[in-house]
Nucleic acid binder design. Structure first.
Length: 154
DNA sequence: GCCAACGTTGGC
DNA sequence: GCCAACGTTGGC
């Protein structure tokens, strides 16, 4: 059964435009360093799942596009690279700790900012809107997915 | 730059 | 296993 996700990306690192410009509009989702998010990728996310592409840590945070999960997981190579900000000295190629999967951008949408998301009563319990939310990958219910893609993105 | 919230670390 | 200290996230 298909599921839905919201994935945060800093547009300075990889914006929806960057993803669309990549070969096949597909980018490896590097840099996840949180166990819960990793476990979502490894245990729950499946090829074909829907993804809300969210821009975070930027002047206008919000949903910027739609994407899909395009692969299963494999080790994130940046964890082995001492020059990478995502380097993890406790990880090794023999026992990789961090995984990534491919995300394929499908379309750029108008930016749906946080104020607009918060203004919709239908989205009151969207995880990204909850207090103290920090997780970079969160599940999105089918109702929320439909509301956002059908009502907000028009 | 501030700071609330939360995850991780490490001593005990 | 507890928990204080510390680091990170991310909106503002």
């Amino acid at each position: 059964m298909q599921q839905y996700w919201l994935m945060k990306s800093e547009p300075d690192e990889c914006s929806i435009d960057d993803a669309l410009a990549a070969p096949d509009a597909t980018v490896p989702w590097t840099g996840v360093r949180n166990y819960q998010a990793r476990n979502f990728m490894r245990d729950v996310m499946r090829v074909g799942d829907g993804v809300l592409f969210y821009h975070s840590s930027c002047p206008q945070p919000g949903i910027a596009g739609v994407a899909r999960v395009a692969s299963g997981t494999r080790p994130d190579p940046t964890q082995f690279d001492p020059g990478s900000p995502y380097f993890d000295p406790k990880s090794s190629p023999e026992k990789p700790r961090w995984l990534l999967l491919d995300v394929q951008a499908l379309q750029k949408t108008r930016l749906i900012g946080l104020p607009e998301l918060r203004a919709a009563p239908e989205l009151a319990d969207l995880q990204i809107l909850q207090r103290g939310n920090r997780l970079s990958i969160t599940p999105v219910s089918e109702d929320h997915w439909r509301f956002i893609t059908e009502q907000l993105m028009r």
